[in-house]
């Protein structure tokens, strides 16, 4: 539908920037750029981060799959493997718990004046990404190949229509959020 727009590099860079402005504004207003809020989530005492993420997932999922159904959008699921998604994910988690920000919220934290995010977090993530570029040729042929499943989505893996996953998943997520509120978290 917006094929011509997708191909315009200059316009896309501007759109990317504007999306980032709104994204950063929302993350900061949500409190997700605060170390205390993120660590509170990981210590399971403050569920703000999960509430933001899960309501984004429910809203986004319904809209994006509706757009796809109407032929107005294409999905871009990332490829993965157990060796990449799970091992890499657990390493990420260790860093997440130590740093107390993630790559997106660390940038928002810098903007609010958090100097640990700038001189520790951002510098560290750049070093970590650079080190990964060094390790990549070996990891790509080794660990990251374990249990490769490509760009599969959950409905594809289960051989069911997306609606059959979306409806129960939204129900479970909304139920979980409702439960968290009801027990005062």
């Amino acid at each position: 539908m917006f094929k011509a727009l997708h191909a315009k590099r200059g316009s896309q860079l501007i759109i990317g920037f504007l999306v980032g402005v709104i994204f950063g504004f929302l993350l900061q207003k949500g409190g997700a750029t605060r170390y205390d809020v993120i660590i509170g989530q990981l210590l399971l005492t403050d569920f703000t981060v999960l509430k933001v993420m899960l309501s984004a997932v429910v809203t986004g999922m319904i809209g994006v799959y509706a757009l796809k159904g109407a032929g107005m959008a294409q999905l871009h699921p990332k490829s993965g493997s157990f060796g990449s998604s799970v091992i890499g994910g657990l390493i990420f988690g260790v860093g997440f718990g130590i740093l107390g920000y993630c790559p997106g919220t660390v940038v928002g934290a810098v903007a609010q004046g958090s100097l640990d995010a700038l001189f520790g977090g951002v510098v560290g993530i750049l070093i970590g990404a650079g080190l990964f570029a060094v390790a990549y040729p070996k990891l790509e042929k080794g660990f990251m190949k374990i249990g490769d499943f490509g760009e599969t989505t959950v409905p594809q893996a289960l051989h069911v229509s997306p609606q059959l996953v979306i409806a129960p998943l939204c129900t479970v997520i909304i139920g979980l959020l409702y439960w968290l509120e009801s027990i005062g978290l």
């Binding site: 890499g88 994910g89 860093g95 718990g97 130590i98 993530i125 990964f132």
Partner: peptide, 12 residues
């Protein structure tokens, strides 16, 4: 923490 999360993010 940054080094580990940066490495893990690209791994994942």
């Amino acid at each position: 923490g940054g080094i580990i999360i940066g490495f893990g993010a690209r791994w994942a």
